[in-house]
Simulated scan of single mutants.
Amino acid sequence: MTKDVLHYDTVGSFLRPEKLKQARQDFLENKISREKLKFVEDEAIVDLVEKEKQLGLKVVTDGEFRRSYWHLDTFWGFGGIEHTIPEHGYFFHGEETRADSATVSGKIHYVENHPDVQAFSYLKELIKDDDDVTARQSIPAPAQLYVELFRDERNKKITNEFYPDHQELVADISKAYRELILDLYNHGCRDIKLDDCTWGVIVDDDFWNVFSEDGKYTRDGLQDLYLELNNGALVDLPEDLRITTHICRGNYHSTWASKGGYEPVAAHVFAKENVDAFYLEFDDERSGGFEPLRFVPKGKEVVLGIITSKKPELEDKEELKQRIKEATKYVDLENLALSTQCGFASTEEGNKLTEEDQEAKIKLVIETAKEVWS
């Protein structure tokens, strides 16, 4: 893949232009039609892809401009899932998000023409004449859907009513996801990234037990479950399909949800998840050191997210080079790459940066990578 040669990348989401934000608000208030909203989305995506190519990115995305959230919009596209409004949003460090959720309404199954497939098809068409550019589709990991279905007492109750057999729930989630992945592949997608906050929660000593389902799971038990969900969707896939994962500790309006290094989960996710590469947050002390990377199998890639997408201040290039050198104690330089630590807008609110700041961060990623891997 082109990224393996270039050793630079982004996580995928970009700040929404104000015109797009206004159009989405107008649509929610019934001031414009869905067709008009799509027209504005289309125009914004065309502009973004052109900008990505001008910056020198060889793996491009649609910025997740058709989504409100990095994860919920995908869930809402499955059969047996409905959009609900809980009493509270997610609680981040110092801020509560908008209140939206996904709740079981029947047996979970894949539905043809899923919104993510529609979104990718448009992106793919934009780069059909660019042989050196790859179109990527990011989707939330299967484990992330499972966690959402047990997010609060109401969701737990409803999920257990539809799925008294827990293994049936796990199997249905994995199956729906595998069918989404194969549908994306059939529409030309060769690069799919699974965004996953579940591991970023388990690493937090003060937070992981919130997801233990009232003591049903130990920390190791949760990891076994999440591996089963994710790997269950990644069986018998085409050999030319690149599957990667991004592990996040929360990214909303420049705030975060959890803390902790990767050591508690490394022997599970790094050693056993069936992906080709790991996109990992290492932008501040909350992420811990590089030592857990010793569990990454030889030959798998690690994309070091050591340039933050949460703040506009630019990192020192020499310090970035030194951190990359430190990581080579555990992963060969040829199997490392550089990116921002997360997307710039995991939700449509976006982080507290300007589009100029966003561009400067991407330029720093590319310039540093070209100097390190020259």
Rank of each mutant, 00 (worst) to 15 (best):
F282P: 15
E179K: 02
E263D: 12
P264Q: 02
K19Y: 09
V201D: 01
K321T: 05
K19N: 15
A141L: 11
R178T: 01
A143M: 11
A271R: 08
I307H: 09
E348I: 02
A271D: 07
A102L: 10
L20C: 12
G250P: 04
I85C: 00
D284S: 13
N186W: 01
G289P: 08
R294E: 11
K329R: 08
D165R: 12
D236A: 06
N30L: 02
K361E: 02
D42K: 09
R249K: 09
E148K: 15
V235C: 02
G94T: 09
I173S: 05
L336K: 07
S339D: 11
K361D: 02
G221I: 00
E18V: 06
K21E: 09
R154M: 01
L57W: 11
L222G: 06
S346L: 01
R16S: 13
V296F: 04
H88A: 05
E87A: 10
Y185I: 06
L237M: 10
V111I: 10
D214H: 10
Y226G: 00
H253W: 14
E153T: 13
E43K: 14
Y279K: 14
D284I: 12
E153H: 13
R136T: 07
K53V: 09
E239I: 08
H187F: 00
F282E: 15
H114M: 06
R16E: 03
T134Q: 05
F282D: 14
I324H: 14
F290N: 07
R294N: 03
D62T: 14
W373M: 14
F39M: 12
S33N: 10
I173W: 08
Y122K: 14
F92Y: 15
D224F: 06
A143V: 08
Y185Q: 11
N209W: 09
E273L: 14
E43P: 04
D195E: 01
L126M: 11
Q118R: 05
F207Q: 12
T103E: 15
G250I: 04
L320H: 06
K128P: 00
Y262N: 05
F27W: 13
A233K: 00
D205F: 00
Y279F: 15
E313A: 03
L194K: 02
T198M: 06
F290R: 01
V40A: 04
Y252V: 00
G250W: 07
S13E: 06
E213G: 00
L304D: 15
N209A: 14
E82P: 00
E96H: 02
L6N: 15
A277G: 11
E319S: 12
K36P: 01
Q322N: 10
H253Y: 15
V331L: 06
D191C: 03
L37H: 06
V11Y: 13
